[in-house]
Write a protein that binds this DNA or RNA. Sequence first.
DNA 1: TTTAGAATGTGTAAATTACACACATTATTT
DNA 2: AAATAATGTGTGTAATTTACACATTCTAAA
Lengths: 247, 247
Amino acid sequence: MAIKTKPTMTVEKTLKGLQTEVESINKIAISVDCVIFGFDENTLKVLLIRSDLKKYKGKWTLLGDLVKPDEDLDSAAYRVLKQRTGMRDVYLEQVKTFGEVGRHPAGRVVTVAYCSLINVQNHQLQIHDNELHWHSVDSLEDKELGFDHKQIFETCYRWLQKRVQEHPLGFNLLPKKFSLRELQNLYEAILNKKLDRRNFRKKFFSMDFLVDTGEDEKNVPHRPGKLYKFDFEKYEKKKKIWAGIDF
Amino acid sequence: MAIKTKPTMTVEKTLKGLQTEVESINKIAISVDCVIFGFDENTLKVLLIRSDLKKYKGKWTLLGDLVKPDEDLDSAAYRVLKQRTGMRDVYLEQVKTFGEVGRHPAGRVVTVAYCSLINVQNHQLQIHDNELHWHSVDSLEDKELGFDHKQIFETCYRWLQKRVQEHPLGFNLLPKKFSLRELQNLYEAILNKKLDRRNFRKKFFSMDFLVDTGEDEKNVPHRPGKLYKFDFEKYEKKKKIWAGIDF
DNA sequence: TTTAGAATGTGTAAATTACACACATTATTT
DNA sequence: AAATAATGTGTGTAATTTACACATTCTAAA
């Protein structure tokens, strides 16, 4: 290909000059917002907090905070998570950035949305704020959220629905050891549809990442199922390259 | 689930107060960077420009700019694209945000990466900057880019490879009317592997979104192929819900 | 202790989809 | 007119997905 070009004066910017430019223009703040999913009572839930902003008084919002000047984006998201839930070592992944001019009433704030998956069983006692609550994903359908957080939530939820079918994220929502019924309940809750039990089992067994712990469920009012754990190491070694055109 | 909670003093922030907080903290600038793909001479290419920063003199970089305080992120990306290539109505989608503390030498700059796909044929005369050039994706492998742009490019390229198999983006890289060979060449270039011609055709015909224009290729030194166009409207109506657990 | 209930655990046949593969056709060029 | 080079099409096989039913095991209640 022949691109027609003509020489131009190239103005070389100095580091100093650009620094000034940066400082003069940065009237934009940046924040992170976490869509924190949990799975409990066979229901997919999201952690929300009451807005501390008068304008949105009474409205539920995602957990978020401004990013500090010397802080990585991921670290900021992680900090929010730790501060609000007391949890460490949780699954956290960036999903999308929302930056419409009018999205925040206090001025220009661009926010980076993160999706987090936590195991509610291990950590339920660590939440100490009265205004922090789990909401079933279903119940959000007709709930208004503050800011553009409804839109952010929906983006992250759709992201999760797709992602969970291609990567083994779901296990982050379960205890280390889980029964296949629990796993299926989780997938049914996330995807919001019934799955065939036998085919579901076949699918997961054929992937060959589930390890039989030798233990059974305890305290269930019926025949206990076997408990499995997910072999992340084996998965990392064997994971597939995506292939196949399909739309 | 019973979350143990205790009442806390909730400090209600006023809009004014938060505004001050935002202003005091916003030492972070935000930019957009565009990974602009084109397809020419059966090769996937990326549009790069010479860094205007002394530190990266001589290095190629992505096209980007700081986001203005009163400008949406998407608009900023679109502006960069229009300014540098003179093109309108192009495919543009946000991919990921990069915000590590040390990523920019001039200070803290968080950048939102966009992927753009353009039809080189329609627009090749619009590029007027001598320091703006197409680089084959292959050739980037052993080229150093300025800033963290190599990483950004790689993220966007992998994103494209996956995305193009699930959504009809690819057509944005081709003329409105194209032969199946061109389409296959495109996919082979993006995915960097040979595909079976018959199965490729079968696949696309069975999706039933290709419309026979009745025209043939012109000026080819062999039997001309039929020209097709993609029926985006039909696609929008019929598009599938993704299904199938697989990892 | 017996029985009813409820969930676990397993196999197979049919249908669909993916893959490998070969030859006749059509236009161009010499 | 013949050689070349790419287009255009079909079929058999393997792999995957889907639909579907019954015996087993443990719990809880009678």
